[in-house]
Each structure stands twice: as structure tokens, then as C-alpha cells.
Amino acid sequence: MTNAGATAQAIAPRLKLSTQYGLLGALLIAPTVLIFCAVIVYPLVSAIYLSLFSIYTPTLKGSWVGLDNYVALLASGEFWNAFWVNVVWTVGTLVLQVVLGVALALLLHQNIVFRSLARSLILFPYFMSTVVAVLVWRWVFNDLYGILNHAMMWMGLMSVPLDWIGSMPNAMISVILVGAWKYFPFVVISVLARLQTIPDHLYEAATMDGAGWWGRFTDITLPQLREVLFIVILLRAIWDFKEFDLIYLLTGGGPVTATQTLPLLVYKHAFALNEMGGASAVAVLMMLFMLGFMLLYFRYGRATES
């Protein structure tokens, strides 16, 4: 980088100061831009291009088919099934994440003993590998030796062990549950950070005005959290919608296609059905669905950030 500085200095006498600064700024962003073009923009554009071909994965040989991939997809039951599965998974896990996240943020905001240990334990699932999270839950869910079935039978909630992963609607419930468990800490973190900035005197004033704890929650806490919750819900909706690892590892999309979301469908088309063009078409359509949320985040997320 000393080179960059030196270069800017060397051409100094020729150029206006503001031009020099502009060039230096461009030079600093250049590596980022180059990498972006190579590994993100180029693949993104070629994904759209590839979706117009039929490509056989093992040989990577392809032929132009125009919009046929899209036509076939939009007419196929599997695609729309994946879309609705994706919506159910996203809405289900998102609602749980937000409810759990807000509740636990409120709890961890209180003065409990060993609070920082409690916070670490709660936040940890978010930072652990999805692979580990899923393995752990598969062991908990295990139909024969899993602790969940035994605990529920011991409590008298059921009499025979349940198949948590291999049957419906259990598989969807399990996926949603594990998703909520893995990702609700994100909501906790964001809400907790916001809670810490609500001034105490607001609560004191409300208490003096006769508000009970519920009144204080609905009149002060919730309105203060509105903005952060809006952003968190948007972000999590985007991230949950494109989740692959968790579902793929937990159910593999099964039983049959009951938990097969769009990202799993992309993978299946590309590497199981060996049809990369079709897979790209699924990916492009999926991105179009997500674009709405992204634009929302663009418009409101950045406004609230600054």
C-alpha cells in the first residue's frame, strides 16, 4: 500500500488535489471491485446465461434451449411444491425466531445471576456450525435412543416414540424447530443491543403515570423495538429463505419432497439430476422471489442504519 501512496504522490503536481484523492480512493477499492467482478458479478451473470442452456453435469456439455427451462419449471408440480415448502419453512421458523428472540432478549436484559454466562449459552447456537447443530439434533430426535422421545414419554405426553424426521408433518416441524433454535440468537443479539439504549427515565415516567409491567412493555418497549424488529425480520426472512445446510443435513428434503425447499431443488437438479441449466433456472427464479425483500431492505434498512 505504500506503493499506492507513492504513486499518488508521484503524479501529484499534475492533478488537482481532489482528483488525486479520488484516484487514491478508487485504488483502495480496486481489489474489492476486482474480486467482486471475478467471483460474484461474473458468476451471477453467467447463472442467468446458463439457465438458458441444457447442461449435462458430468460432461459439462450444453445446448441452447432458450426459455425452455423456465417454461418447464413453471409448469412443474415439483417447483411449486418447493416454493410453498420454502414459504412454510420461512414463515414458520421466522415467527418462532422472533417470538423466542424477543422473549429471551427481555429475559437476558434483566439482572439475573451469571448473566454473561447465560448470554453466552443462549448465543452459542448461532455461532456453531450448522453441521454440528444438525448432528446434535438428529441425535436428540433419534427415534430409538433419542432423549426427546424418552423425555416426552416420561412426562406422559405420548405413549409411543415418534419419528421426528422421516414422516410428515413431523419433519417440517423438526426443521422449523431446529431452524428457530439455531437462528433465534440473532434476534436476541439485535434486540438486546436496542434494549440497552432505551433510557431508564422512560420507564420511570411510565411507572409514575401508573403503567404496570405489561403497560410498560406495550407502550414503551415495543414501540422502541419496532425499527430494529423490522430490519431483523427482513434480514432473517432473506437468510431463512435461502437456507440450504440445515434442511439438507436434517431431512435431505424428505420424506420424499415434503421439506424440499428451492435451494435444495437447485442442488438436486445440478448434482443429482445432472441438469445444470435447469438448476440455474431454479436459482434465478428463487433470486427473483427474494428480490422483493432485498429491495425493501435496501430502502428501509439503510435509512434506519444511518
Binding site: 460474484i40 451471477l44 435461502k242 437447485v266 442442488y267 445440478a270 440455474s280
Partner: peptide, 14 residues
């Protein structure tokens, strides 16, 4: 915010 699955096929080919 871009999903990885969109990039994965072209990246694989690349």
C-alpha cells in the same frame, strides 16, 4: 444478501 446457491453452479464451472 445474495444466496450462495445462485453462484454455486457458475463458480463450480469456473
Amino acid at each position: 444478501l445474495l444466496p450462495s446457491v445462485v453462484l454455486i453452479i457458475p463458480l463450480y464451472l469456473l
